[in-house]
Design a protein around this nucleic acid. Structure first.
Length: 526
RNA sequence: CGGGGAGUAGCUCAGCCAGGCAGAGCACUACGUUUGGGACGUAGGGGCCGGAGGUUCGAAUCCUCUCUCCCCGACCA
């Protein structure tokens, strides 16, 4: 439970190249001014628009401003729907990568890297797969000054190219399982994009495994789903609900898709990680077969699972407030920001500087990522700035504090202040980071519970979805038609079929009253 | 891709209706005074008015096309 950071291996990332084709659509602008404070219409540089989660447009303004002003990311307007992740934002991603990578290694996986370009013939080998991705694939049609004989897809995902290699690598049951993960970028040409949540190019990891039996593949699928859920809650303080997807919502080419779903402050659900049991679909398409112990040649069972920069956006949305971002300590690039308060006398000034240096040294020694802001801005400006950037804990070191051998600690998420002895500050800071992490998770959980309702009648369903949105637990008979009609009428889709729904026992479908085995989780989705 | 809105300094915007020197606040640079919740003074720097055509003696302003962003849909591992 130690929150000690371990800066792990940052995944390798290559740049995508764009070719051709379809018109994109796009992205955003405007940072905000001061709204909601008519009295002080004075535009203080860098003030955030309030986080109004009821109005989609206002919420979007907050989100875009929070990301741009905090220097997490910026648009790359020449290519619609693409973005640059700036150092502060990439620092978050690196910490996320480290947390995930550690978990992948602990479950026996190794990293590798596969090519960016996928020949069209590869995509075509699995019918549902190509059908599912066709509209969003970007193609390279020319290279080296010539038209290519076969156009190349910029990978939207790597099942096919990896299947090609697994077919070569797997000969015997002794070669199984194959447990490989890749950190990469992928491109999916989206019609409508949102910072992190849906961008044309994004960063992710995709795990691809091959197994001897269905059971083994299924076990792997569920294991990684659990890893995702645990990661989201432990590292990102983002509570999630996990479960299988319906036929309609599953990955093209998969036997079964499972996902973790988080609830955003505006009441919409965010699919934050997926794990697929691909059955033998890709093994058949790519001839991944092996000679089993009994001398029979059999197709392998494969899985794939991915988590992307999307969940980073979800994490940013979930925790921020009117002041800006609030980063969970475990993934915050800067966990503690020290703000020195200038003193009038040279003697006191030296004392301040000495104390700041000592604090930095001790925090660093204790594994806490700390920085001091020694710029010549005024302290008040720094307080606001670092709060906006979401640094979980601030330590103020000024002459008044030091006169009592104390410093002031301020929590970002509650803004609670406390005086602590100079000697005890590093230890207290470390403890507070753990508390803040827990408080953020608790707060997000409370929000989710408050926005999860159980409904049995369709009128209630519609009213609830129109007014509060959020998660709705309701019975569903299993028919794709009911699923589609509910979506048409309320925009809500079935996010997952949660495991805990078993407890409610059978009931009647919320739409047509037909017998239903269990409840499912509905929500409008990003 | 359909409907609606918007692109003018790094940011937020005014100017456009009614064509005539490109503006404000914040941010930025220098110096000074300041510094415990976004300081102040003085002096400065910064623009192909998203892009391309057109109309006009003259276009940020009028017309056409196009690109990008935001919202609502459609679509979407």
């Amino acid at each position: 439970m130690c929150h000690r950071p371990s800066i792990g291996p940052a995944g390798s990332v290559t740049l995508g190249c764009r070719s051709a084709a379809i018109q994109p659509s796009l992205f955003a602008l405007l940072v905000a001014t001061c709204m909601g404070q008519p009295e002080q219409s004075r535009d203080v540089g860098g003030q955030m628009p309030p986080k109004d989660t009821r109005d989609g447009e206002a919420f979007s303004r907050w989100y875009v401003a929070a990301i741009r002003r905090s220097e997490i990311a910026d648009y790359f307007e020449p290519v619609g729907g693409t973005m640059v992740i700036r150092p502060y934002g990439f620092g978050i991603w690196e910490n996320m990568q480290a947390g995930l990578d550690r978990r992948f290694k602990a479950t026996g996986h190794r990293n590798a890297y596969f090519p960016l370009f996928v020949p069209e013939s590869f995509l075509r080998k699995e019918a549902k797969h190509v059908e599912g991705f066709a509209p969003e694939v970007a193609w390279v049609t020319h290279a080296g000054g010539e038209k290519l004989e076969e156009r190349l897809a910029i990978r939207p995902t790597s099942e096919t190219i990896i299947g090609h290699f697994y077919a070569k690598w797997v000969q015997s049951w002794r070669d199984l399982p194959v447990l490989i993960n890749q950190w990469a970028n992928v491109v999916r040409w989206e019609k409508r994009t949102v910072f992190f949540l849906r961008t044309t190019e994004f960063l992710w990891q995709e795990g691809h495994t091959a197994h001897r039996t269905y059971d083994e593949a299924q076990e792997e699928t569920m294991k990684m789903l659990d890893v995702y859920a645990e990661f989201a809650e432990t590292e990102l303080a983002l509570p999630v609900i996990k479960g299988p997807k319906t036929e309609r919502e599953k990955f093209p080419g998969a036997l079964m898709t499972y996902s973790i779903e988080a609830l955003m402050p505006d009441g919409k659900a965010l699919q934050s990680g997926t794990s697929h049991n691909l059955g033998q679909n890709f093994a058949r398409a790519f001839d991944i077969d092996f000679l089993d112990q009994d001398g029979e040649r059999r197709h392998a069972w494969t899985t794939s699972w991915g988590m992307s920069t999307r969940i980073m956006g979800g994490m940013l949305m979930a925790h921020g407030d009117d002041q800006g971002l609030i980063l969970p300590p475990r993934i915050a690039p800067i966990q503690v920001i020290i703000v020195p308060i200038p003193a009038k006398s040279e003697e006191d000034q030296t004392r301040v500087e000495t104390a700041v240096a000592a604090l930095l040294r001790e925090l660093d020694g204790g594994g806490v990522r700390a920085e001091a802001d020694r710029s010549d801005k005024r302290p008040g400006w720094k307080f606001n700035e670092w709060e906006m950037k979401g640094v979980p804990l601030r330590i103020e070191v000024g002459p008044r504090d030091l006169a009592n051998d104390q410093v002031t600690l301020v929590r970002r998420e509650s803004r609670a202040k406390e005086q602590v002895s100079l000697d005890g500050a590093p230890r207290r800071a470390a403890d507070l980071l753990v508390e803040i992490q827990a408080a953020l998770l608790e707060r997000a959980r409370t929000f989710r519970e408050a926005h999860t309702a159980t409904v049995d009648d369709y009128e209630g369903f519609q009213a609830s979805m129109a007014e509060r949105r959020g998660f709705l637990r309701a019975y569903w008979c299993g028919s794709a038609e009911c699923e589609a009609r509910i979506k048409d009428a309320t925009r809500a889709t079935i996010r997952v079929i949660p495991a805990d729904a078993e407890a409610d026992g059978p009931g009647a479908c919320v739409y047509d009253g037909a017998p239903a085995e269990r409840r499912v989780l509905f929500a409008q989705a990003y």
